[in-house]
Amino acid sequence: MFNFRRRSEQTEKAPAAPLPDDARRLHLRFVGQVQGVGFRWTSMGVARELSLTGWVRNERDGSVTAEIQGSAAHVGAFFSRMLEAYRRHPISYTVDEREDIPLVPDETEFEVRY
């Protein structure tokens, strides 16, 4: 059968899953070799594999800013998975800022922002 719903109805986001009891949200700033190497897309892939929500974007100063949210274990795993993702094609980067910030309870996905 054909689906005749309006395009806006077809692209509605799923409701947010309940946050785990140990949920946390981090604001991060990455510096170093983080632009032009697929860093945002790799971050998005890793975050989605871990069921994290949030966003990542390039900054004009050459850094990358991100906010990641999820269970404490998954947020912690994000960093080791990023290192693993770049093992074959090493890049040099550091986390310049890392701050716990308030949760965003209705967030449903991780996205690349522009």
Rank of each mutant, 00 (worst) to 15 (best):
R6G: 06
S8P: 02
A23N: 12
D106Q: 12
E59M: 08
D22G: 03
G54T: 10
E107T: 15
Q10D: 13
S51V: 02
S43F: 02
V56L: 02
A85M: 04
S51R: 12
I68C: 04
S8K: 05
R87T: 06
V112C: 03
M44A: 07
V46W: 03
G32N: 03
S80C: 00
S63Q: 06
E97K: 15
A47P: 10
A17K: 06
Y114L: 14
R113W: 11
L50K: 04
E59P: 06
G45C: 05
S71W: 05
T65W: 09
R60Y: 10
G36M: 12
P90Y: 01
R57S: 12
E107L: 08
G76F: 08
R40K: 11
S71C: 02
H74C: 15
G62A: 01
Y93S: 01
F78R: 05
V75F: 00
L19I: 15
P20D: 11
P102N: 00
W55H: 10
S71M: 01
A72I: 09
I101F: 06
A14V: 03
P20Y: 08
E84Y: 13
A16N: 08
S51L: 13
T11Q: 13
V37S: 04
R24I: 15
D96A: 13
R5Y: 15
R40H: 12
T108E: 06
P18K: 05
T94K: 10
F110W: 05
G70M: 05
T42C: 14
I101K: 09
L28S: 03
W55I: 11
L28R: 00
A17W: 02
F78A: 13
F78P: 11
S80R: 00
G62H: 02
F2Y: 11
L52I: 09
A16V: 07
E12M: 13
A23P: 10
A73N: 09
E99M: 09
T11E: 12
K13L: 02
R5I: 08
G76W: 07
F110S: 06
V75C: 04
D106Y: 08
L83M: 15
W41V: 00
F30Y: 12
E111N: 07
E59K: 10
Q33S: 03
Y93A: 01
P105L: 01
Q33P: 08
D100P: 07
G70C: 04
R40M: 14
E67L: 01
A16H: 12
D61F: 00
F78Y: 14
A73D: 14
R87D: 09
R57G: 13
A77F: 13
D106A: 09
A85G: 03
F2K: 04
L52G: 03
R6T: 11
E84G: 12
R25F: 05
R40T: 11
D96C: 05
R81D: 13
L52K: 09
R60K: 13
F2L: 13
E9L: 10
V64R: 07
T53E: 09
Q33L: 07
Q33N: 10
E59F: 00
R5D: 14
L26K: 05
I91L: 02
A23M: 10
E84P: 05
M1S: 15
P105R: 01
W41D: 02
A85S: 07
S71E: 04
E111I: 14
D61V: 00
P15I: 06
R48H: 03
G70F: 03
E111G: 11
F110N: 06
V31S: 11
D21S: 09
T11P: 01
G32E: 06
F79R: 00
E99R: 15
T42R: 14
